[in-house]
Amino acid sequence: MKTARSIAWARRRVALGAFWQGYRRDREGLFGLVVLVVFATVAIAAPLLADAEGLSLTKATGPRLAPPSLAYPFGTDEDGRSVLTEVIWGSRISLLVGLAATVISMVIGTLVGIGSGHFRGFGGGVLGRLTEWFLVIPYLPLAIVLATVFPPDVPRIIAVIIVIGVTSWSGTARLIRAQTLSIEERPYLERARALGGGHWHQMSRHILPNVMPLVLANTTLTVSIAILAETTLSFLGLGDPLRMSWGKILDNAYSGDVITSGAWWWALFPGLAVVLVVRAFNMCGRAIERVLDPRLRELA
């Protein structure tokens, strides 16, 4: 005897399968996915690919500002460290911060979005207002202000993750709110209410699963924003000074007079890494949108 739960799960599995079928056919999406898998592998396998000692100032043995060569494929920086090592290890922090901040952003955004769409009256109104306010406030000045407010004892990397998470949830919230509002109209939700389903039941059993596809598409786009944000914040000097990230490499390069010395490799390779990863996330996001939105699919 199939329970309602298992029926729902079976339906979802079928939907997931169909989704994957659609995604597989999308060239852009596949390409993006492959790039992401490569970067994820590099980040996870960092200790195997490059010696951690290569990041240490005291142990650096390479020539200063050497252009790319066989020994140093990405060249060296002004302290003699291999830029390749820095980019490999930097991927860990850049990706970690991006993903962690995205989790925070998505959680807040989804909760606020569903809440403001579902609850009528004061609660929903407040959440909706909050979303509008955060949408309007320009993100970088807010991030800068928040980053400076954090007490120095908090490890900077945590501070950066929280700052990015807290400043980027509003776009997600607005989208989810709109979706929630349209779901609210649907008949089965009325039925659930009539049967005595409480708020939490409605939100978790009915609204959330229907909002999930949108959340998924939005997540990839949020990750790309988060990684860009981390890179910019590190470049401005607000990142963690003790951990290598791609933004930190660029900050070192800028302060280390990369422009005068013409050491293009020092800025180009970490920059390319950022652009490639962000673009890959964007490509996946657009592909997911296409798969989910039948209208766009027709046009593809």
Binding site: S224, L228, T231, T232, F235, L250, A253, Y254, V258, I259, G262, A263, W264, A267, L268, G271, V274, V275, V278, R279, N282, M283, R286
Partner: peptide
Amino acid sequence: VTLYSTPEWLLGLVLLIVLSD
């Protein structure tokens, strides 16, 4: 999409490195 994935200051930095000399 590629340009949209690039921070503006990064473009500026690369431009300066290449052209300022």
